[in-house]
Design a protein around this nucleic acid. Structure first.
Lengths: 354, 354
DNA sequence: CTGAAAGCGCTTACAG
DNA sequence: CTGAAAGCGCTTACAG
């Protein structure tokens, strides 16, 4: 539409393209790859023909001949996790700025080996894992990658023992939350959905534990979890169910920490439906600081993951690993979280504040 | 961990692999590709060695030699649109079941040509567009694809004139919504965020128009839009701003139709903050039927896109187009929406119901 | 039923 | 500064 096409014929190989321009294949290849020592006139001629014909060198041939593919495979647990999606999104953007292509795959529980095999067959430069995976399965995947001399990186889950990772410091996150709430006079804490075998969960429990002890409180008394009473199908619904169970208790915690924002919102609505005022009667913290936090009344206080930092460090790590020799030497990086205080947190009931 | 590795050495080519098994490269290739006429014993031997060594034939060499790549490129506008993400997610799953790999890329406004070029250089079998794109830019992309004999499909946007598409019937969607509300006694309708040059918007306006006329109402009077009063940065915030403007009007519509769920939630909270009761004082419809609809009080009525249907049809269309000759003949398919009635819709004020 | 040979579309020494 | 030739790792006629 913009300009009339001068050469509508389709060119399928450098051979055809070279003939069309009137140069040898090698010269064209050199021009295409920006090698030094070509006449400017030659370069211009190739560039013009490139624009006119829309010719694209076959990436498979390029990859076959030369270096490793400038591709990074990304394995996701699920597309339904908004935080994970935000991470891939930013990762792909940053990697593209570095000239790297991202190959995004959902690692379905049954076909994970097949998916990894596909990435390996494409000879990707590295494989990134984003989300929560079964630790032993993940360990097996990483082992296979290492055997194939392909570097890996686990984002936001410290993963099994021998994995390179960049992850949010969830121990610190929970310390920050508890410290803040203790300063507001809270002494008893309800845990919403913070249970399970994942490291991302056990780290949080460690953080809660440490902060409580540091405040002179006994974790066995001050932290209450009713997770075992319900089955988690949907985070939001699980939050509702847990809140209902807490409502049925004689003595209730004054502050609640949810595993994520959806769970927190489920609990918030349930508490409010029971006539409790937030934050006057109780305080509530989400996790992830999604947009959803702005859609409740009052707005939800939450923990921000600092995704930008996570991805920046991840990209640096990947670039260092791609092309260098794969060793068994492990790289670990922790990203600092920060609290976002909104309307669901305040002084403990009957307490004027710190 | 599961079994001790019998052959920890890494094999990088069929040549090495064939030598390892003690067969010729051709035989190995045939076994790998399931060609008929091999001894079962040979097949088993190859399979066993495959498992033991973890060898993966180089996909680039395979693609270079043989047929078109069994890959489908997917261009997304953004990863922040949950409905679009749900579509890719399901699409990737379904295509994988057909043995096709999905290559997901975000089509950044500036670098869209480069991204498309990358997909073309990988010789993908087809390119799918999901989301909202600038019509003229999209037309240019599709034109380039056609020049390269690569089939395309636009999902959920009828797209520019000459595009293959599978999209929600938004005309029908709005007809259903208006018909339902008219039956409930509503005669005046506020439009929230339904404006702009995209076909997905103009289709909705067509539907509103038709349904109002069919009900004997004058669209110029019965449908009110205040979109022009504000700038849309964030859907949720835009919903709040629009609601505030409607609140400032002397005579207000009794029913509101939002462009999506986020916008609806923004408006809902604003209306409620002003002391209006939903659905007693006004009715409100979202669009997309996201999980978010369950997180408001009352729960949000919305229009469901029938994503499963959309993707099923899309996959069928793609399979038909991949491998067959690319023509200028256009395929169009519309998917029927359905209403999900929840708590935000009811009889018009002062009206006992239908 | 299996092997030797050509060729897919590139890049990169190696000559000129 | 540019061209002829080898080779990346596969598959597929073509012989045996």
């Amino acid at each position: 539409m913009a300009k009339p096409r001068t050469t509508p014929q389709v060119i399928r190989s450098t051979a055809e393209f070279a003939a069309h321009v009137g140069l040898s294949r090698s010269t064209v290849s050199r021009a295409l790859n920006g090698h030094p020592g070509l006449k400017q006139k030659t370069i211009d001629r190739v560039q013009a023909a490139l624009d006119a014909t829309g010719f694209r060198p076959n990436a498979h041939a390029v990859n076959l001949r030369g270096r490793r593919a400038a591709m990074v495979g990304v394995c996701m647990e699920d597309f339904r996790n908004p935080t994970a999606v935000a991470k891939v999104s930013l990762l792909q953007q940053r990697l593209r700025e570095q000239g790297l292509t991202t190959l995004i795959e959902v690692l379905a529980p049954g076909s994970s080996r097949q998916t990894l095999g596909h990435l390996l067959s494409l000879r990707v430069g590295a494989v990134v894992f984003i989300g929560h995976f079964d630790p032993s399965e993940l360990a097996a995947q990483i082992d296979e990658l290492t055997r194939h001399s392909t570097p890996h990186l686990v984002i936001d889950d410290p993963g099994p023992g021998g994995a390179n990772s960049v992850s949010l410091d969830r121990v610190r996150a929970m310390e920050l939350v508890i410290e803040h709430l203790v300063a507001q006079g809270h002494r008893s804490f309800g845990l919403l959905g913070i249970s399970g075998a994942f490291q991302t969960v056990t780290d949080r429990l460690t953080g809660v534990d440490r902060a409580l002890r540091a405040a002179g409180l006994d974790p066995a008394v001050a932290a209450v979890s009713l997770d075992s009473l319900h089955v988690r199908r949907d985070h939001f619904e699980y939050g509702s169910l847990l809140a209902r169970s807490f409502l049925a208790q004689r003595r209730r915690p004054t502050a609640y920490l949810a595993v994520n924002d959806d769970t927190a919102v489920g609990a918030l609505l349930e508490f409010q439906a029971a006539g409790l005022r937030v934050p006057e009667d109780l305080s509530l913290f989400g996790f992830n600081n999604q947009n959803l936090c702005l859609m409740t009344r009052p707005k939800l206080s939450s923990v921000d993951q600092n995704i930008e930092d996570t991805i920046d460090v991840s990209v640096k790590t990947l670039l260092a690993k791609i092309g260098s020799v794969v060793t068994r030497r492990i790289t670990t990086h922790r990203v600092a979280p920060h609290l976002v205080l909104r309307g669901t947190t305040g002084p403990a009931p009957g307490n004027a504040g710190r």
